[in-house]
């Protein structure tokens, strides 16, 4: 009788085991389809956005559009000053943010102990900086750079007439404001790159009699360069699309000239989009130009990104392979 029970139990177990494969298979379908669905949703949203912009904007894009100034109450002409202004703005921003961000990261990672009070204080500040809304940066830029720094410069270097020279919205102040906004990005990605450098490489350098500075300059920075570049890329992507920080600090509605000096105002693509969408005399008539401007902004940002990514991957492969 005992034997019979055993046989029965074995059969039951076999039956369950035989079927469990099918059951598990059917259970697996639910999470897979759920996750797939959300992926498709995101892909669809992206496709709609990009498709809409592309279809609406492609007809407007022409050599005239990207090489001429706006005309007739923004209803005609091109957006060249805005493209120029955007590139100049981002360029100045990178010049300001990369050295400061990299030096800060090097200080944090190489010259302080990770658990010291000062390191923690700086790190908390950086995290908070990253969380500040961008309009606050704009107001800060207005108050600090234009009124305080610019006003101070004007009071020291008095220029013949009473008009402010530095104490007014200008491309230098806008790019510095953007640099502040993107500083955390550069610091964090540089620090990550520094952290990824194996301890053995530093020790090998020290063991050959190299000083700390020599080790940083000859081993650590070259090794961290792709990471630093990544920080630059992220800063550019972030900075090129921001409008709020430049609203009060230098962006202009319309300018008959290009910014050729640091204290000039400038036109910018993101701001131009805002102007075309809300401030133009006849918004319906500016719609095609609006589409074209958005498309240009997207392409420009992608282009900047791809250039940087291309340089970075070249650098990586050269270091590893050759």
């Amino acid at each position: 009788m005992g034997n019979g029970t055993t046989v029965l139990a074995t059969e039951q177990i076999n039956q369950v085991l035989n079927n469990i494969g099918d059951r598990k298979k059917s259970q697996g379908i639910i999470p897979k389809s759920l996750t797939l669905l959300s992926v498709l949703l995101i892909a669809a949203i992206l496709a709609v956005i990009l498709g809409n912009i592309f279809l609406g904007g492609i007809g407007v894009i022409s050599w005239e559009f990207i090489s001429q100034s706006p005309a007739h109450g923004l209803e005609e002409g091109g957006i060249f000053p805005a493209i120029f202004g955007t590139v100049a703005l981002v360029f100045l921003m990178v010049i300001a943010v990369v050295p400061i961000g990299v030096l800060t990261a090097i200080y944090l990672h190489e010259y302080t102990r990770p658990d010291s009070m000062i390191t923690r204080a700086i790190r908390i500040s950086i995290n908070n900086l990253a969380g500040v809304p961008s309009i606050v940066f704009g107001l800060f830029g207005l108050g600090f750079f234009i009124s305080f720094v610019g006003g101070f410069l004007d009071s020291v270097f008095v220029i013949a007439d009473d008009r402010p020279y530095w104490g007014q919205p200008a491309i230098i102040w806008a790019s510095l404001t953007l640099a502040l906004l993107t500083l955390p990005v550069v610091i964090v990605s540089t620090e990550e790159a520094l952290r990824a450098i194996p301890r053995e490489l530093r020790e090998a350098s020290y063991a050959l009699g190299a000083t700390k500075l020599q080790t940083i300059l000859r081993i650590i920075i070259p090794q961290a360069l792709p990471g630093i570049l990544t920080g630059g890329i992220l800063a550019v992507s972030r900075g090129a699309g921001e409008v709020a920080p430049i609203l009060f600090t230098g962006a202009a509605y319309y300018l008959p000239y290009l910014p050729t000096q640091l204290n000039h105002q400038f036109m910018e693509l993101g701001y131009h989009v805002y102007i075309l969408a809300t401030q133009a005399p006849d918004i319906d008539k500016t719609k095609p130009i609006l589409y074209g401007t958005v498309l240009t902004l997207l392409v420009l940002t992608f282009l900047l990104n791809f250039t940087a990514i291309f340089i970075r991957s070249r650098m990586r492969s050269r270091r590893v392979a050759d």
Binding site: E200, L201, E203, L208, R319
Partner: peptide
């Protein structure tokens, strides 16, 4: 000093050996 894990610099063979002299 020679370490447990070989740790050449991400440089050429020549530059690895020359590093100590240069610094």
């Amino acid at each position: 000093m020679v370490f447990q894990k070989s740790n050449p610099f991400p440089k050429s063979i020549f530059d690895n050996v020359a590093y100590g002299l240069r610094v």
